[in-house]
Design a protein around this nucleic acid. Sequence first.
DNA 1: TTGACAAATGATAGCGCTAACATTACTACT
DNA 2: AGTAGTAATGTTAGCGCTATCATTTGTCAA
Lengths: 336, 336
Amino acid sequence: MSDYRKITLSDVATRVGVSAITVSRALRSPEKVSVVVREKIFAAVEDLGYVPDAAARALASSRTNVIGVLIPSVTNNVFSDVLKGIYTGIENTPFDLQLGNTRYSVLSEEQLLRVFLSQRSAGLVVTGTDQSGAARALLASAPCPVVQIMETDNEPVDMVVGFSHYQAGQAATEHLLAQGYKKPAFIGARMDPRTQRRFRAFADTAKKAGAFDPARVATTPAPSTVTLGGQLFGDLLATAPDTDAVFCNNDDIALGVMFEAQRRRISIPESLGICGFNDLEMMAVAEPPITSVRTPRFEMGQRAIAMLIEAIGGTPPARPLVDIGFQLLRRRSTGC
Amino acid sequence: MSDYRKITLSDVATRVGVSAITVSRALRSPEKVSVVVREKIFAAVEDLGYVPDAAARALASSRTNVIGVLIPSVTNNVFSDVLKGIYTGIENTPFDLQLGNTRYSVLSEEQLLRVFLSQRSAGLVVTGTDQSGAARALLASAPCPVVQIMETDNEPVDMVVGFSHYQAGQAATEHLLAQGYKKPAFIGARMDPRTQRRFRAFADTAKKAGAFDPARVATTPAPSTVTLGGQLFGDLLATAPDTDAVFCNNDDIALGVMFEAQRRRISIPESLGICGFNDLEMMAVAEPPITSVRTPRFEMGQRAIAMLIEAIGGTPPARPLVDIGFQLLRRRSTGC
DNA sequence: TTGACAAATGATAGCGCTAACATTACTACT
DNA sequence: AGTAGTAATGTTAGCGCTATCATTTGTCAA
């Protein structure tokens, strides 16, 4: 690779005996080049191992094949599942991904957005609908399609794929109440906007049933872990020992609650009902299996990219708002 | 953004009253520009909201700020922890990340490598040391620094940050034997090269103690999940019901084994010892807590990027081979 | 056969930046 | 004051590709 000269368009052109622009056309819009020439060009490309220079193309055409993706965390299970869907969605397309980690900061998000826009991204995927004012303005006037993912509770800028976190929280809470639990609690970590909507749903629904007590709410801004779930459950029992059910922020928290309950010999589901969120794969096989709300994370990523690519191609989807739904999975941890 | 003309270097230059190249220098190597001019330039950049065009820079300098990262999976916990380290490592550096998902295929890996090399990546991070012959050749003659991560068992191409999976497997197996287990089993999914090295260590170590029985090995090429752990454990008990300990491929499998054992009322650690691998956060708080081998995944990513950036800067680290070690965490699941 | 028109190909310029060399401004010393 | 030497800035050209417009070739009807 050291004394290796880069193979360029004109190398291919010379080899075939045509001009560089014809090679460019053969690669970009093959239908504009005669079949004979086209095939000779493809053969030469293969032969020489020509790989187009993305930077040169971007500069010349002032377009890129880069889709910018803004997510708040690279480690969180939720987003890695969404990412997997996104990666699957761009497979066998000419698009590349550029990931931006906002770390749950609207300011980082705004800054990354500026970078992506200045680099003429072909499209953008952003998480949630709670951007800063400036960021929303940037998105609204972005020269490329934008998909917001994760939630449908707010008004989207362009397209959106998600589900209603409020409705999901409501469904979970109603389930706990329907199972006969009288004193439900909420445990939440990393109270991001979506978690907050779920909490609001919990509070509203419990209130309506006369079962809401602010003492039965344990939250923290720290990122959620199984350990933290156990600790918050401990805190909760200290202030509200009569708690008989917990709606957890997510499944990590729920697992922590389960382990801590087992440690304290609190019987699940008799003395304690547990409901998680996201339905991680292990929830179904835990002992006992844990009730959770399944969120179609992989599909969300896939759909988002599919819509984006369609829109980049010039045919924006008829329905720019996709509610991908959720599903309450009733399991033994809530007496099912 | 629609009828918005891109702000370029010469816009800034005109504003300040210098030539474009001076602005370029002020941004690239500030020490070559007088303080007075430099500050005026910075002010103008801020003022106009100038953002350099990465494509133009790449084309002109035939260098990029893109570090290519090749990992076999975007969802696996192990790699998402490594990724987190990598992301942390490039924070506040001028570098961007481009992720390539090889999906455990050496062919995909080779292809992605070609793309990254043709796009003049500033540096490369690749997973493992088991590339295809062609890929190894590409890496060996790559015009940029390369860091291999995850394992130190093989000869690296350039730099490497990892640990010995063989030694880790040995330590785990010796621990099971030392705890008095006589009939240890191995359960593994997604038998990638690193898992295979751990298995080889298990087999060698058990053999040496006269405790190896091929009937007590359950593996599958499918990706590991908690559910799969439970199933493989069931299979294992069907063929080797006298198994008294399990060394698991990873913690997901170990959790599955634990839940399945609980379901079958097999007491842990009395009738069954369980040892996992990776030490996911929840292992310490599971009930019972599960013995595992802690692997410094975050640190591995961080160190890898730090070394790479040093090398890109022209000062390759003195020791290009970093064994970052591992740690056996003895917990109740093996009677500790 | 010729003209009209479409299809196929080519020539030219320029995207925004930096490498390489050229020039000018400044400093220090004889 | 003059000169060498360095620091600061400028000029020119070109990275590899594509947009735009120009030209050539091919096709078909009259």
